[in-house]
Amino acid sequence: MQRRDFLGLSIATGLFATGLSGCRTSDPLVFGIHPWIGYEPLYLARDFGWLPASVVLESGPSSKDSMAGLLSGKLHGAALTLDETIRVWSEGTEVVVVAVADVSAGADALITRPHITELAELQGKRIAVEVNGVSGIMLLKILELAGLAWSDVVPIDLPVSEHAGAWSRAEVDASVCYEPTAMKLEREGGVRLFDSSDIPETIFDLLVVTREAADGNPDAVRDMVTAHFRGLQHLVRSMHDAVYRVANHQGIRPEDVQSALATVMLPDLAANQRYLSGAGRVEIMARSLSKLMLRTGMIRNEPGFQRLCDPSFLPRSLP
């Protein structure tokens, strides 16, 4: 019910934003975002006023909203994981990866009840997972490593934001989730059995825009990417300040922010150039991942991209 209300509200705001923007000569880039440590630079940029009027952040509770917004055309871009990007592509909306916000290095984790000590013991267990999200991919990888099939476990499809509730109600034995949920579960006695640092450079959190926006409003896209990197610069350089702001934003303690930051790699401009290049890691992962997703039926259609990444929106330097 809450979710429905929220959707209605966001559609209303979206319509309002579109209606308003219709009067202006250049529509702002409406960019969908949800709380995640890797996307915090954009929030920081917004808070410091580094986000120009050409970009409007549309904050939702999870990436589901961002994907729906992209598919409905309400959003011109969104912060998504690589698998979500592929999903959007296969659903028929052409998107372009313009920046890598972070690479998961422990941020996505499998938290189990303490009695589960090995991956193989997952067999027959109830595992909370957001099937159509990055945790779904994570679980696929985990099952692959554990030598189990999807049918060997009892996946309980839940949005990650609801995992903590399910856990405390003892409805699940394990959860494939990400920060800060993972940390909350750990505090409630969960054990980190597996995390993304075991599969490095596999789970990417990206900033994507629709092909339409990339072609039609490239300046706004560039503004958005630049704002992300300014926020990132503040996050890295003024860690003493940023941890408090992120903590405030995510509603967690500053120490938790620091430990969350330890679970992701935040690639700077140079690293982004590397990741987004034609033969870069993102492009390679995208191909193998889309094959995997097609094989497991996570997507119905093969996304028809030749080139998913476009590094041309990366700023040459920062102020």
Partner: peptide, 16 residues
């Protein structure tokens, strides 16, 4: 500034 977990009132960003 509203900074969760920071024990003092503050008007600016923070430094070490």
């Amino acid at each position: 500034q509203e900074l969760a977990g920071f024990p003092y009132v503050v008007s600016t960003r923070l430094y070490p």
